[in-house]
Simulated assay, not measured.
Amino acid sequence: MHVRRKLRRLGRATARLALGSAVMLALGACWPWSAPAGPTGAGGARLGDEGRFHYWLGAACDGVAEIEVELVERDGNDRRVLDTWRLAAQDDDGARLEHLTLDAVPEGFTEGNALRTDWSAADLIRIGIHSAESQRPEDGGRFYPHRPIRASVSVETFLADVDEHAGAWYVQDRGWFTEEEYRELADDEVYPFCAIPENS
């Protein structure tokens, strides 16, 4: 990752933070990137070999039918999708998925279209996982079949501290965790993609 690019992003982040603080003090508004209430399905991001974006769902998910990744640019309150990466399972019953690296098609999936945009050019990476059918893990969790499970990663926040957390995973709105620490997050209402409690 080029140092100049990271510095530009950090400069933009500082300016936006200052503006956001002023607006919050003036209007008593909530932070736009605050975590939603209730249990949240969230995985972790890591910088892989050659600067590739790597995402971990938090656990192996069976029956994944479709994967959709959007690279989003933010301009104030406006958002624009720069590029979309779509993958579909080769089997009607879906395929198992636990790790996803941008531009690397996971086993059991077919690429619908290739990414044309470098992920680091985006402000936000949105990841959507669609299941083929309901999956109920042994621990009592549930993989919802009728709605995609989504997560987002702020690129600026992720890159700001990535060099200081080798081997750890970045969870949006939560911070950096080892795999062992991540598994303890269920007590704090954060769950792997396919293990959200049935009654949540």
Rank of each mutant, 00 (worst) to 15 (best):
M1L: 12
H2C: 14
H2E: 15
V3I: 14
R9Q: 10
G11K: 10
R12C: 14
A15D: 10
R16P: 03
R16I: 07
L19Y: 04
L19K: 10
L19N: 06
A22E: 13
A22M: 12
V23T: 12
L25P: 01
A29G: 07
C30Q: 03
S34T: 07
S34R: 05
A35C: 08
P36N: 04
P39E: 03
T40M: 07
T40Q: 05
G41K: 05
A42L: 11
G43M: 06
G44Q: 08
A45W: 09
R46P: 06
R46N: 00
L47E: 14
G48I: 06
G48M: 06
G51E: 08
F53M: 02
H54C: 09
W56S: 10
L57N: 08
G58H: 04
A59C: 13
A60L: 02
C61G: 01
C61N: 02
V64S: 00
A65M: 03
I67D: 03
E68H: 05
E68V: 11
V69D: 01
V69N: 00
E70Q: 13
V72G: 12
R74I: 15
D75A: 04
D75S: 13
N77C: 02
N77D: 09
N77F: 07
D78Y: 04
R79V: 15
R79I: 11
V81G: 06
L82A: 13
L82S: 15
L87K: 00
A88W: 00
A88E: 05
A88C: 02
A89R: 01
A89H: 01
D91R: 03
D93L: 09
G94E: 01
A95G: 01
E98C: 01
L100N: 03
L100V: 08
A104K: 10
V105Y: 02
V105T: 11
N113C: 07
A114P: 06
R116C: 15
W119D: 10
S120G: 06
A121Y: 08
A121M: 10
A122W: 03
D123V: 13
L124A: 08
R126W: 05
R126S: 13
R126N: 09
I127G: 09
I129T: 05
H130R: 10
S131M: 12
E138G: 02
G140W: 02
G141Q: 01
R142C: 14
R142Y: 07
R142D: 14
R142E: 13
P145T: 02
H146V: 12
H146T: 15
H146F: 14
R147S: 15
I149S: 06
I149P: 06
R150H: 10
S152M: 14
E156Y: 07
E156S: 13
T157A: 12
F158Y: 05
A160C: 07
A160L: 07
A160S: 04
D161W: 04
D161Y: 08
V162D: 03
D163Y: 07
E164Y: 12
H165K: 04
Q172F: 06
D173M: 11
D173H: 11
G175K: 00
W176G: 12
F177A: 09
T178V: 05
R183E: 14
E184P: 11
E184R: 15
L185T: 09
A186N: 11
D187T: 11
V190S: 13
Y191I: 11
F193D: 00
F193M: 01
C194S: 04
A195H: 13
S200V: 10
S200W: 08
